[in-house]
Amino acid sequence: MQIIVSGLIFGCIYGLAALGLVLIYKTTDLVNFAQGEMAMVTTFVSFTFLSQFEMGYTTSFLLALLFAAVFGAIVHQGIMKRLQSAPPLNQLVVTLGLFMVFNGLAGLIWGHKPAGYPQAIKGDSIKMGSVFFTPNEIFVMGITLTLMLIFFVIFRYTKVGLAMRASAQDIKASQLMGIKVTNVFTATWAVGAILGGVAGMMTAPITFLDTHMMFDVLIMAFAAAVLGGFLSLPGAVVGGLIIGVFENLIAFYLSPELKLVYTFLLIIIVLYIRPQGIFGGTQSVKKV
């Protein structure tokens, strides 16, 4: 049981990062491989606020998220906007290029030595039934569920969400209807970066803060998104939870070194049976 619970904690982080990936993909039709590195940079920025300027956790946290939003918006306005109609492979490779740039820059600025990063909430473990929780773990779960709910509601029920969905479906038609598609996309990038940033600041206390810390999270988030069907927001979170738990179970019962291998084996098996992912709709047959 304890194993499943700690798996769920990791799952929440994967789910958050996956949520950011899916949000950007769903709206702008693009997979952002630089997501993890943007989150890593955001986390470093919050760390700078914490350690250099000695601000409180909440202030640093919020300021870092503000930074993430601006960061995401700049990346979209400066680069990705120009690639809106480029072939998907070009877009993907550009985000890979950004991945390398951000990683290199972060190394230059903050160095390559891992540093400790504080938890959001300190405190002793609480026992619930037979399972121990730290307050921080409860915080992680809480924030994941809240954010997921918020975005689900925004996407589904608000005007902004409607604009996002419309832009995703048909850029031209949305423009004709008076939606400023580029602004919607920029906003989506900002939100995606915020989600990644949250995931980053949740990851750092567990893995230590260094330039490579988000790589595994990104991979798992990608896997989670695919497992969830790549188009479903709840699917991304559920995919993240499944992967978190599965990974932890494998690490405990089979082999901690090979957990990655088994996780991908699971994904490939799932995809072989359901090529469109668990939450993906039925595959559309192309009309000829």
Partner: peptide, 11 residues
């Protein structure tokens, strides 16, 4: 620097 240069070249 390698990563940065390659990354910028790609973009």
């Amino acid at each position: 620097i390698t990563n940065i240069v390659i990354g910028i070249a790609v973009v």
